[in-house]
Every structure is written in C-alpha cells, then in structure tokens.
Amino acid sequence: MDLNRREFIQVTSATAAGLAVSGLGFDLMPVKAHAQMLKTKYAKETTTICCYCAVGCGAIVHTSQRGDGRVINIEGDPDHVINRGALCPKGASIKQLVENENRLIRPMYRAPYSDKWQAVSWDWALENIAKKVKETRDATFETKNSKGQVVNRTTAIASVGSAAMDNEECWTYQAMLRSLGLVYVEHQARI
C-alpha cells in the first residue's frame, strides 16, 4: 500500500475508530475507512492560506468533482511549515465561510430614496458604475491646486479596501485608482 502522509493519517485514525467500536461485536472499521476515503478520494485537492489573520497558516481544500462542485472539507495542512496542520477556530471554519447561504451571489442595486435592493446584471452594474466614475471625475477634476501647482487629481471620489484582496488584486486596484486621479486611497492598515 503506497500512502502519502495525509492518507496515512486518515487510514490510521479510521483504524483507531474501528478498534474503539469493535466491542459492539461487529467490526465497523472497513465501513469507517471507506467513509473517510469517500470524503476526499474523488475530490480535487488544492492548498490555500487562511484568509483571517496574518500568521499565514496553510490549509487543504477538498472540492467535489461530481455534483455541485462545491467544497467538501477544509482542514489544516500538515505539510505547511508554519502551522503543521493546526488551525484556530476561525481557520477551521473556512468551509462555513465559503459554503454559506448568506453569501451575496448576484449584484444588487439600491436606487436613490428606495427602501429595497434589486438584483441587476453584472453588465448593468459595471456600466453604471463606470458612468458614475466618469461623471464625477470629469466634473471635479483638478488640474491645479489653489497654489497653482499641477495636481491632476479628483478629491470627490474616495476608496477604502482591501487587505482581504490578493497581492495581484491590490496592485491592479491601486493602478486603476491612481490612473483615475484618486488621492483618497486608504484601507485597513490605517485603522
């Protein structure tokens, strides 16, 4: 039997569970072992880094390759040199963050003075945001400040966020904001 480290852990824990119940008079070990394998055997395995604090713990994500293609399980990565498989309560709950019925799953819009959200398409949302950005920027763009110095900016649009984005997204985001002429660019690090 050729086992990698994780499979070894799974099989041995299944074995221990099997021994524990053998006093019942029948051996559940094969059933238990099969159930353990099912969880991940047909799943896609990817690694991730925890999305909460900045310790940077590694985790393994098992995603179903059949059915809905959603996350089956997320657990600490024993091969990660920082956390060696351990996770805190938040890290151990990432699956519930991802597979959460409360998540936003479509763009929403709230009109002026309205008391409700309405679902809108991505195209509609992004086109309308783009128009707002351009209108506001064009109407408020300052080529020079009160001292007559060239500033090429708008102070009528501001942005906050986000330490929750990946590095590449942060870079892309700041490039967009700076090309638009924003100076009010801030995020979590300031608070």
Binding site: M165, N167, Y173, E186, H187, Q188, A189
Partner: peptide, 14 residues
C-alpha cells in the same frame, strides 16, 4: 489581516 502586509506593500494608502 491575511494580506494587510501585501495591501500595504502595494500602497493602498494615500
């Protein structure tokens, strides 16, 4: 925050 170091490195700050 998981990437507050990165978001600082990439200057999401005025």
């Amino acid at each position: 925050e998981s990437n507050v170091q990165g978001s600082t490195d990439h200057a999401l700050l005025w």
